[in-house]
Each structure stands twice: as C-alpha cells, then as structure tokens.
Write a protein that binds this DNA or RNA. Structure first.
Lengths: 221, 221
DNA sequence: AATACAATCTATCAATCGCTTGAATGATGG
DNA sequence: CCATCATTCAAGCGATTGATAGATTGTATT
C-alpha cells in the first residue's frame, strides 16, 4: 500500500512536472499567449513569435504531449489551440507568482506607472457594469486580425502602431478602458500611458479578452 | 515604443518561464508539496523526497532564484518556505491542467475509485458547514509531525502506516471526511478506500490543509 | 501526374540540466 | 579553539534540451 502510493505519487509528480516544464520556456509562453486569442496555424505562430517553422512545430508538439494544447487538421493547415480554459488559469497563476516574487517583473510592471492610484486597473465586473450604463469607452489595442475574431461589445480597435495618429477618434467625454491579450500584454499599458499624456482619463482592464471569454461575458462578432 | 515593448515582453516571458521551469521537475514539486505544509530545513526535505542533501539544496536554490520559495536562517538550520500563497495557486493550476488534459493522471485519479458517485469529494465550504453542525468526523492522514503543526478543528490523526491497526478508533455513527496535504496527496484516497472496505461511510476533502489555511478557515493547535 | 505549400521528421551541435563526489563555509556547543 | 553538524560550493559526468538545416510526408491546386 505504501509502496504503491509511492509509485503513484511519483507518476503524479512526473505528469505535473511535464505540464510545468512545457510552460517553462519564453517562446512557448509567447505562443500560448497568442493561442489564448484563438486557433492559429504553425506558420502564423512561428511568424508572430519570431521562430523558424520547424522550431515552432517542435515546441508546439512538446506542449501537445504535455496536454497544454491540442491540434486539428483543416485542409493543409494544422490548427493549434489551448486544450482548455484551465490552461488560462495556469498562465494567470504563473503571472501572479512572478508578479509577487520576481523582482524583475515588479520593476517592469511598476515602471509603466509612476502615480500610485494610476496603477489601479479596472476589474471585469466593474467594466461589465459600466458597459451597460454606457459611461465608458472601451479600447481594444490588439492587432486588427485578432480584433476581427472577437472583441468586447462596442469596443474600438486601435492597434499600437496607429495609436498616435488615431488618438483624436476617441471622445474626451468618457473614461477610456484599454485592454489587450491578457494581464501582461504591454500594449494596454502603453495605450493608457499615451492617452493620459494626451489628457484623457484612461485605465486598463485588469486582464484581457481570453479571460473575459472564459468568464462567459458577451463577446461581439 | 514598439521596440521597447518587444523587449519588455521578452523580459516578462523570460521571467515567467523561470517560474514555470522551476516548478517543472518531479523532485521540486515533491518538495513544494512538503513546503506547503510549513517551513522545513534542507535535511528534512532531502530525506522526505529521497535526495542527497547537496542535490536538494541545489533544487531549493533554483526555486529560490525563481521566487517560488524563500529561505531564512535559524541557528544552524536554513528554513525554506513557500514565498507566497500564490505558489499554492500555481500548484493547483498545474494540477487542474494535468487532471483535465493528461491521460496518465486521469487514469491514476479514476483508478482510486470505481463507483461514479464515490468520486465526489467534499468541498471546503460543505465541510465547514458540517463541522459546525457536528455531523462529520474529520480524519487527518498526514504524518504525526505535520499534524502537530496544525490541523483542522477536531480532526483525528491517523497516519497511513497505522491505518489498519487503528481503524476501530473511528465511530461508525458519522460520515468520515479524510484529508491530507493537498488535492493529489494519495494518502487521503487510500484512507477512504480502506474505510469503505471496512464498512464506513467515507469521502475525502477536495484538497488539503494548505488550501484550507489559505482560505483563512480555522486551524487548530 | 506534377507542382506548391504546410508541417513534421532526422541528424547534428552547443548549451544546459540533474546528479554525484569531495571540499569549503557557517553556526553551535563543549 | 576545536569538533560537529547543516548547508553550500565547485568540478565533472552523462543525459537532455533548443536550435538549425535539409530531407520527407501529407494535402490541395493545376
């Protein structure tokens, strides 16, 4: 009994370690972040993360073996996606540990804001309420392709590159809430900084579209 | 702006990867599981996990660099502990991903139970209610040293090795809820199996003492 | 069938990892 | 101050990982 439980413990620890190890590489995390937006093929992912196709394929397969992603074939493309919402939770959990306990992350995160109150992000719940009362403008700062595949109701899409030029499209009347891919997607941070510099009242959403989706809140398009 | 954000993204992904990688080894997970019970010194951990002291020390230091654990010196001992409750969340998240997406884990978990309804664990909330109404006997199946450092209110401690011999200490009148170190600590599974075989009504708590503590529920001793 | 393209496989190499061994450091108690 | 014990350091090893380049498989298009 004790002997068998030792073996079982070992199996569980080994399996768990596979999962964590599969998430333990910068490039794989970058791909997971993209996959959190929706299905992608190997080529696209390789391009976005800056890897060769062969290399991206290898990483994706290791993540598939660990159960982080699944793949399906459509025509000549192989489409990968996160296997589950629990993978989003895992990414969040990794981020929270890093945020609390890794000096480098704290520095980077706090570097994007100087004022204390300015750091306060808007929670999902608060944004949902304010959406229905219409007291807020929602700004989606992801690339146009990702916006097209789904976004928050009524959101305006301005990718980071066009930010400076298209600032004037946004009304000064309401507070602006910017969001991006997830809690550590820096585009949202940068957008808020730019908006504030231009005299807008702006905050960022605490996390991103994948988490909004996972919470079963309405998505447009 | 885009250039700098690329760099920042890379820093974040690198830091996050360090965290995940630090959790991505069976022995380190085993040590984290023990550390979730409370502070431990290097010798003790090495012994429990079955490593040489030097090796355990190396693993602990890599986890310290990644921010998963912290160390303090007391006399001639170096006491390690989880740096944060967020680390518990991380371990839970890893477990949930593995449970949902790794065939091996599913097999092991379901192997401990054959009947469908038997698999239902008791939630923390349910146990808390039933504790106050006194309709349940709580069984702590961890080693006596860990029990001594804190346990659920009114819990009876019977370590796995003594289970068979001390079964008769438990009353048949109430349902028995067994718990252990965490959701995948197999002692609780085994205890429930043994109790049922002996005609008891028994279930296991969905997770373990660390999670109970993290939820700020009362702990005795 | 012939071609083009997406993705995977294979072989290779440098870098890193996990572990062992033995020596060095730090703290405690006679 | 010396002996002892807990921990860390340092060197060395075999195994694994991450990346590259080139060949191969599988699917759609003509």
């Amino acid at each position: 009994m004790t002997k068998s439980s030792r073996g079982i413990k070992a199996i569980l620890h080994a399996s768990f370690a596979e999962v964590a190890k599969a998430a333990g590489h910068p490039h794989r995390l970058a791909m997971l972040e993209h996959l959190a937006q929706g299905e992608r093929n190997v080529d696209t992912l390789a391009d976005k993360v800056g890897l060769t196709v062969a290399n991206a394929s290898q990483h994706l397969q290791s993540m598939r073996r660990a159960g982080l992603v699944t793949a399906r074939r459509e025509g000549k493309f192989t489409l990968y996606r996160l296997s589950d919402d629990s993978v989003l939770d895992l990414l969040d959990a990794i981020g929270r540990v890093a945020k609390r306990n890794v000096a480098e992350v704290q520095q980077v995160v706090s570097g994007y804001f100087n004022a204390r109150d300015a750091m306060e992000p808007v929670s999902r719940g608060e944004l949902r309420k304010r959406l229905s009362s219409g007291t807020v403008t929602v700004l989606d700062v992801r690339p146009a392709e990702e916006f097209a595949l789904g976004h928050l109701p009524g959101a305006i899409n301005i990718p980071p590159a066009e930010m400076k030029r298209r600032l004037k499209e946004l009304p000064h009347s309401k507070e602006i809430v910017a969001y991006c891919r997830g809690p550590y997607c820096v585009f949202a941070f940068e957008a808020v900084a730019a908006l504030r510099a231009a005299g807008y009242k702006a905050r960022r959403l605490e996390d991103g579209l994948p988490q909004w989706r996972a919470a079963r809140l309405p998505v447009e398009q």
